[in-house]
Structure formats: structure tokens, C-alpha cells
Write a protein that binds this DNA or RNA. Structure first.
Lengths: 360, 360
DNA sequence: CATTGATATGAATCCTACG
DNA sequence: ACGTAGGATTCATATCAAT
């Protein structure tokens, strides 16, 4: 059931997928653009937007009903730890977001795709619509989901080395990347940029995960998934997109990388104070100091601290010693010990201990 | 009923306002942030977000009902030519947008306020939420609304001189602009930047218009309105905000400007071909040429053109002569006439004619 | 090959006053 | 309400031909 393209309607296919079997969903549903007539450039040429039969709906309640159906199924097949991305624009994203919240999805972020090269507003009738919106959500409020924070930081082209924000800059899909039909015309009216899908899959899934796209189109989601070593299930109603998409995927291979493996986000080994005392990295009875050099507390054999006659954990103790309103802070950021005539952060001591574990 | 602050609840006050009496509405409703517990920075200090009593709701349907009520009233009191802006974030904007579309509002644009200095995500648990969303809408699909396109162009700090897009960069409200209470703490947890309100009011209303804000808070909307010569009706439930807001408004005066008056958007005088022939700017029977210098058509007394034996209007004729797919293009951009031994654009001729009208 | 200029095009809720 | 004529309006890129 992996790495397949299903040439059928999502509303009939999604119910066939097993309960809680999918790690990541990317959905690029019909937007229901509601355009009328032809839009003409000043020079007299026509703008070719999205005027496909698959984007037509008869009414708002019709569109709501369609949206409710596929969102309901997606929630059923999503793993508890999985997450879903949905892209849309003004015309549809409010319907989508509102139904998601009603269905119990919990929104993680909404993300703005700020297009670097949007179609201008030819007539000057309103603001140039230069973005689309992505909603990223989980099944339930308390769900634990995959998010590679440091991978996202590494991928943050908008502000290198800083945490990734909710506004992303990407050009629209054009040029060589854009699939053409046998007449040389664009195959699909709304092909999404591969780079955006790669970012999404890299930060919110793991190697080997299964990615589902219920409106797969030109298989951009599958292309990104394959490149990053994820499995994929693509559902697409139009045969022509499936055919061209399958061909596209043949030329794509897994490219292993730190990003694909999310190696920046590998959690350091969990170690306990007691363990480090045992290993001789801390000594029972030694003094814990703050950066000011004053001795505040005394280390106990179990890793707790003796402070003003009471035995408390070092995180609570740090907040107390620093006289903070907060009850608890990360003691590894505040406590020092004496080594020779120097003050050493206990974080450094832990780092040294962890390094010995890596070697063995 | 102008330039007033009403210290009361919007749900009771909006129904008292007359039908179709408001030109522009800006609404910054409670977002229902659904925060829990205390968010602590790494150093142990507490982040002071929005935890106000006015932002508490018991359930999604409760919030939907509240939203439906004020949006319904706003639609009732909005003039047919008026428009409404609503700001919100992920937590609420999908509910708001979806209800707006259900109520029959027609969206003009959604606009992203991309914060230049967002609060970081302290825990690294998700993407840094660095934007809020504004929805700009009219009462009905066919409604004509005020939009000063060229004023927007002039105000476009993101890309000077180009059409304004749907992603706006503004810093969050801070420093001197941020109102403080008697203890020196921020008066209001969600004060919006004045510059953003000025932009909104400048591009979507006229001098003398009435601007309504049903959740007026620190009266930023009124401040921008007053500065730009608009009238205002502010509704705010909390007395303390009304008091500080009234004081704030005392120090603000109307600053006249081309932007305030939207002078870039003044429409040129409408003139007809027949009128210009009458005035001698064109001569009946003279030849109309394209840029290539070939004679294509012959001017008739009523301003129409004789082309290949048929009499047609010059816009349709231009499309024909240029062999375009389009049925009609602006003839003033394509036709030339001979003046002496030079080719002159008929747009230039019209410009000359218009200049004589200005003098008299 | 590098540079320049002309041309094509992208999820678009894309005109309006007057008779 | 609807037809007609007047008149206003685009930006970043990619491609390709010409220099």
C-alpha cells in the first residue's frame, strides 16, 4: 500500500484507506475560484487562470459538503501523531479552516506562501493577491506531532539561522519545473512549487513515513516525498495527470541528506544527575553556584540540592536562588561548579559526560 | 452621531445604529486565543500575552454565535458602497471568514500583516507565528466600493511605485506609540499599529466618511480616522480604554495631504470622440493608423471607424486591426493619427484636448 | 559565450457611467 | 436590468532570438 498512484476520486478512495495509517497529509483541494468571463491583459492577450471543470461547484453549501467529506476521512486515516497541511486562498481557506476546527482538528500554524512573482492585478481593482494560505493541523489538541525545529531553522531562507516563521517566500511554479502537455501548454493549471513541498515534508515527517495527497495533480507531493525518502499514496481523479505524474516520478530518486534525516533535531542522550555523580562527573556534597560565584546549594547523592535547609530539585532551586517569579527553570542554564579555580557551567560538565557516551 | 466614543457592548449598541449609515468598518474582535497556563521565557520571566476576561469564550459554538451577531449587524449598517476590514489570527479568522461568506459578504482581498518583529516561539514547538490576517469585504458581490488604487501604490513601502500587494510589513505596536496605564504597564494587550490603520483608512475611504470600530480598544482606528479627516464612531466595552482613548484623541489633529484626499486617484474628465471632432481635434474622414504606420481605418463624424467596409467603434477596430483574440481593447493605446509628418498617439491628442478643458 | 531586448505567462472572485 | 461606449490597467521571471 505504499508508493502508489490511485487514479480515482478521493471521496470514494479515502474511505478505503485504513484507520490511522497515514503520517502526513498534504491536500491541495479545488479552490472554487468563481471566476467569470475572460480576464484580458492590456495588450489584448487573455490570462489563462484556473477554469477547469474540477473547480466548479454549484453553491457554498455544496462546497462545504465536499470539504467536510474529505476532511472527515483525512482525520480518520491520520495517525494520532500525524499532521495535515491544506493549501487554499481567500475563496476557500475560510471554509476549510472553519470546518477543520469544527471537526476537532487542532491548528498548529497557518502559513502564508508569499509569492515572489504573483500575477499582477491587471485592472487595478483591488490589492494584488500575492499569497496563498496553508493550514497545518493535528487530529487533536493534545496530539504529539513531528516537527523538526532545527531542520526548519536550517532551511529558513527568509532569515538564516533564526527560527522559521509563518510567512514563506517562494516563486510560483514555472519554467522547466512546470509540466507541459503534448502541445507545450501547461499540463495543470495550479501546479505547486516543489521547493515548498520539500520544506513541508522535511519539517513535518520522518524518513520512511507515509505521505498522502488526496488531490495529487502533477504529483509534486510524491516528487518531494520520494526525494526525501518518504513513502507516498497519491489520489488523483484525472488520468492525464496520473500518467504525466508517474513519468515525472520515474526520474526522481532519494537524495540522502542531513535535512532528509532531520539530523539537526536528533535529541541528545538523556542523562540523570545521579548517573553523572556515579560516573564521577559531579561529587556528592559539592557546592552549586550561580554565575555570581556565590555558593548557594549542596549536591546530594540523588542529584537534588540542599538549599536553605530543604532538599529540592535543581531546577526549582535555580528559580528560588535567582529569586524569580517562575517556579522552575532549566537548572543546566544557571548552575556552575568549581573545577580547579574556575567556574564551569554544569551544562558543560554534562556535555563532557555525553561525549564519553558517544565514544563507547 | 459622529466622532463619538460609546462605552458599551457592541452587541447592544450596533443594533441602535441606522441601516446603511457607515462607510467603513474596522473590527478587531476578541481572538479567543485559548491559551492555557503560563508561558515562560528561557530566563524564567513570564510572557505577558492576551489573557483578558474579554477574550474568554466557553466553546466554539459560543464564539461562532458571538461572531455571527456582530457581523450580521455590521452588514446591516454598512452602506452599499461601504467595506469592512476584520483582523484576526489562526484561532479565529477561519470562523470569521467562513461566517462572513455565509452571510453574503463578498471578499475583496485577504491581507497578511507580516510582523517585522514578532514574538518568538520560546519553546521551539512550532513555526514562529509571525503574521495576522485581515479580511476586506463588501456587502454583496456586485457592490462598488472605495479603493484608491494609486494612493495604495504611493503608500506601497514594500515595493515603491508598484501596485500594493496582499502582504504588508509593519512592526508590532510598541514604544511611545503603545499606551501605558498608571503603573507604566501596557494599557491594552493587543493594541494595533497606527500606521496600519492609516493605510487601511486611506485606501478604502474618503475624507468626510464615517468609520466605525465595534471593538475600539485604545482608539487606534479613531486616531487614524481623525488624522486623515474621517469621522468616527467607536464602541468599546471597557471604560478604562475609553478614558485613555479619549485623551489620546485630544492630541491628534487632521493632517491634510494628497494621501488623505486620495488626489492620485482623481479621475480625468470623460470626453467623447464626437466631442473632440466637434472641437477640431480630430477631422472627419482622417486616417487612423497603428504604430506600424499603415493606414487601417477612416474616422467617421460620430467617432466610429470605417474598416474593411464596416463601421465599428475604435476599440473593437483596434483589436481587429491588431489581429488579436480579444474582441475589444483600449483604442487610445493603439491608434495614431498623422500631424504634419509625424505620427501622434490619439491618447496625446485627447490629453491636449483635456488640458484646454482644465483651463476654462 | 555574454548581453540585451522582445515576448510570454502565472489559482484572478479584475470596469463603469450612461441611456 | 441591460446594452453600449468610454476609458483605465501589470510585475517578476523565464525563454528565446538577436546582437
Amino acid at each position: 500500500m505504499n508508493n502508489i498512484i490511485i487514479n480515482a476520486d478521493s471521496l470514494t478512495e479515502l474511505p478505503k484507506l485504513p484507520y490511522e495509517s497515514i503520517d502526513l497529509i498534504f491536500a491541495d483541494p479545488p479552490y472554487w475560484m468563481r471566476t467569470e468571463g475572460v480576464l484580458q491583459r492590456t495588450e489584448g492577450t487573455e490570462f489563462q487562470g484556473c477554469n477547469d471543470s474540477w473547480d466548479k461547484f454549484s453553491s457554498l453549501s455544496d462546497y462545504e459538503s465536499f470539504t467536510l467529506q474529505w476532511l472527515t476521512e483525512c482525520r480518520r486515516i491520520l495517525k494520532p501523531s500525524g499532521s495535515i497541511w491544506v493549501i487554499g486562498s481567500m475563496q476557500c481557506i475560510y471554509t476549510i479552516g472553519s470546518l477543520m476546527q469544527r471537526l476537532g482538528y487542532w491548528l498548529i500554524n497557518d502559513i502564508i506562501w508569499h509569492k515572489t512573482n504573483p500575477t499582477p492585478n491587471f485592472m487595478g481593482t483591488r490589492l494584488n493577491n500575492s499569497h496563498e494560505t496553508l493550514i497545518w493541523a493535528v487530529k487533536n489538541k493534545r496530539a504529539k506531532f513531528t516537527f523538526h525545529y532545527k531542520t526548519a531553522k536550517a532551511l529558513n531562507s527568509e532569515s538564516q539561522g533564526h527560527q522559521m516563521g509563518s510567512v514563506w517566500r517562494f516563486p510560483v511554479c514555472s519554467g522547466n519545473e512546470r509540466l507541459k502537455d503534448s502541445n507545450g501548454h501547461k499540463l495543470h493549471s495550479t501546479q505547486k512549487p516543489l521547493a515548498m513541498l520539500e520544506r513541508i515534508i522535511a519539517i513535518s515527517s520522518n524518513i520512511g513515513d507515509t505521505v498522502l495527497d488526496p488531490f495529487a495533480g502533477t504529483m509534486t507531493t510524491a516528487a518531494a516525498a520520494k526525494k526525501l525518502g518518504r513513502k507516498y499514496i497519491m489520489i488523483e481523479r484525472e488520468k492525464i495527470y496520473c500518467d504525466y505524474g508517474a513519468e515525472r516520478l520515474e526520474n526522481i530518486t532519494f537524495e540522502d541528506s542531513e535535512i532528509a534525516r532531520a539530523e539537526f533535531d536528533v535529541k541528545p542522550l538523556r542523562v540523570s544527575m545521579a548517573e553523572m555523580i556515579e560516573a564521577g562527573y559531579f561529587v556528592e556534597g559539592e557546592k552549586f553556584l550561580l554565575a555570581d560565584g556565590k555558593e548557594y546549594a549542596e549536591l546530594q547523592s540523588d542529584g537534588k540540592l540542599l538549599y536553605q535547609g530543604k532538599i529540592i530539585d535543581m531546577h526549582t532551586c535555580a528559580a528560588l536562588a535567582k529569586n524569580l517569579k517562575a517556579k522552575r527553570i532549566n537548572g543546566f542554564d544557571f548552575w556552575y561548579v568549581r573545577r580547579g579555580n574556575k567556574l564551569i557551567s554544569i551544562k558543560t560538565v554534562r556535555e563532557n559526560y555525553r561525549n564519553t557516551l558517544k565514544i563507547t
